[in-house]
Each structure stands twice: as C-alpha cells, then as structure tokens.
C-alpha cells in the first residue's frame, strides 16, 4: 500500500492503495464515485471511460501510480448540475435503455467534442467504436452527439 495524491473532478484526494490498483477501482471502491463502470477490465468495452487530462481513457487500464499529479474527470465531475451539452443531448434523445454503458459513452463523446467540435460521422464512429452498448442504442448516441456538437 502507498499514499497517492490525486486530482479528481477538480478536488484533491488522497488514497492508500497498492500502486497497480486501476483507477476504476480507486474511484469506485475508495472514493465512492461509482458512475464509472466495470464492463470488461481489459480496455475492450469502454464502460470505465474517464478523462485523463481531457483525453478519453479506460480507467480499468490506468494504474493509480500513473494517474498521480494528473487531472482526472469522472462522469460525476463532467458538469456541476448534469447539464453538460452532451448530457443534455442524451436526455433530449432519451438515449439510454439499461443505462449501464452510458457514463462511458458520455465520457467518450464529451472528450471527442472537446477535441473536435464538429466531427463527421466517420470521426464519431471512430471515437465511439470502443464503447459497447449491448442494448443497441448506437443510433441515438450518434444523433445525440450531433445535437451536442451544434450546441457547443
């Protein structure tokens, strides 16, 4: 075990965990931020997507030791009142079914729009192909991303 200083959603936090502990479990188990989801643990589903210095990152593959000193944003910190344009667009299109994948989808989508405010269909697909939705809400996700792009 060791102490790690983290900046999560703009707040300084300290955790005492093993250095190999993935950020996914640091968030979920140690910081009570459970919006970030476990889906595969091997960077193959996108459910655990967070922002590391603004870039969409699979937190199941990010050891806490590599996150120290970096800015991390989880779904809980994407906006203060749940009104990020991507979140609003998600509500407008009533995207979720079961909802389990959606935090990861939203984190991937918001990072995409940050880097590329007006993505083409191909660019959207490219950025989102790592996020599985077993319920099959892809058409709505894509439409919501386009709506959010117009707002931004």
């Amino acid at each position: 075990m060791a102490l790690f200083n983290l900046t999560i959603n703009g707040k300084k936090q300290q955790v005492d965990v093993g250095p190999s502990t993935p950020m996914l479990w640091v968030l979920r188990d140690h910081l009570n931020l459970v919006g970030t989801k476990y889906g595969c643990g091997i960077a193959a589903c996108g459910a655990c997507t967070i922002h590391l210095e603004g870039t969409a990152t699979r937190s199941c593959q990010l050891p806490v030791s590599a996150a120290e000193g970096k800015n991390i944003t989880s779904i809980e910190g994407l906006s203060e009142n749940g009104d990020h344009p991507v979140q609003q667009a998600w509500l407008e299109h009533d995207v979720p079914q079961c909802g389990y994948c959606q935090a990861g989808q939203i984190m991937s989508a918001s990072a995409l729009l940050e880097a590329n405010p007006n993505p083409s269909d191909a660019e959207i697909e490219n950025a989102m192909d790592g996020n599985i939705c077993r319920c099959g809400t892809y058409t709505r996700i894509k439409a919501a991303i386009k709506t959010a792009a117009q707002v931004k």
């Binding site: 459970v34 919006g35 779904i75 994407l78 749940g82 979140q87 979720p96 959606q102 935090a103 939203i106």
Partner: peptide, 19 residues
Amino acid sequence: SKKNVEGKNIVTGKPMFGV
C-alpha cells in the same frame, strides 16, 4: 411519449445498479 424517469440519474452517473 414521456422521457425515461431515470434519465438524469443515468447521464450523471448516480448509483443505481447492483454493482
């Protein structure tokens, strides 16, 4: 059509699943 009553909770990552 009515919006999903859990929509806001889902998009803000509120705890609601078994995990």
